[in-house]
Simulated assay, not measured.
Amino acid sequence: MSPTPEQQARKHIDELLIDSGWQIQDFNEFNLSASLGLAIREFPTETGHADYVLFVDKTAVGAIEAKPIGTTLGGVAEQTAKYIKKFPKEIPHIGLPLYFAYESTGIETYFRDERDPEPRSRRVFSFHKPQTLYEWINEKDTLRTRLQNIPELDVAGLWPCQIEAIEGLEKSFKRAKPRALIQMATGSGKTLSLQTLNGKEVTL
């Protein structure tokens, strides 16, 4: 019998998780000491069974909602939210809601960080490594939070078109826009504009 679309999705998700350094376990045999990063299948929460709950350093930090291949993930975030907002009190967890939420078909994956100023899902290539989530957990603020506090631009030595370009990009960053474009004429100082911008952002 051919696998169902959901079974195919779970297979792809398992492969992505393993490639990213996660150890996969079933709920009835999970061992929090087995690895830094654990993905526990069919984890019971107060609002139902989460397809996967992610543990980093023995603490629940996020969840994955698995969907059949071909599902449009844009409207699935609410389902993941149910699991990360109502989590068993007796299980060690980072806080409520759990920080990290994923929706995935195994072909397409969306991610959001609930600590962002305006959390919203965005497409990612794969699941983040356990070490990456561990580092993010221990940072004071998320990147998108820090982008709300970009240092004021020192305009000395900059042309008006350069100031406009840099400030426009910074507004885009603050609005969490995934893409931005600088369009400047030849000889108008694109290189200096980007060097100035880069010098500011590395301090975030």
Rank of each mutant, 00 (worst) to 15 (best):
L54E: 06
I107D: 09
L133W: 13
E46H: 14
G95E: 05
G62A: 11
L96V: 12
P178L: 10
L54P: 04
E108T: 13
D19S: 09
A101Y: 06
D154W: 10
G189P: 05
P119G: 05
R144V: 06
Q23V: 09
L143F: 11
V56I: 05
L16E: 06
K190M: 01
N149T: 09
T72L: 11
L153K: 12
P5K: 08
I107S: 13
A180K: 05
T72I: 12
E135Q: 14
R41G: 01
T186H: 10
Q79V: 09
E29V: 07
T109M: 00
Y52F: 13
K58F: 00
Q7S: 07
F27Q: 07
S2T: 11
I84R: 10
R41P: 02
H49P: 01
A101P: 02
L169I: 15
S172H: 11
S121K: 10
E108A: 04
L73V: 13
S188T: 15
T109Y: 07
Q23E: 11
S20W: 00
F125N: 12
R123S: 05
P88H: 07
V53W: 04
L147E: 12
L38T: 01
G189T: 05
K140T: 15
G48T: 04
I24K: 08
F30H: 10
T145W: 03
S20C: 00
P160N: 14
I64Y: 02
H12D: 14
W136F: 14
I64R: 05
T47G: 00
A176I: 00
A34P: 01
E201V: 10
G95T: 08
T47C: 01
N138Q: 08
V76H: 08
I40H: 02
E164W: 07
R123I: 03
E139K: 15
K190L: 01
Q79R: 15
F30G: 01
I163D: 00
A66C: 12
I107Y: 05
L38D: 04
R175D: 11
V202K: 09
E65Q: 13
I163L: 04
H128I: 06
Q131V: 14
A50F: 10
G75P: 02
H12M: 10
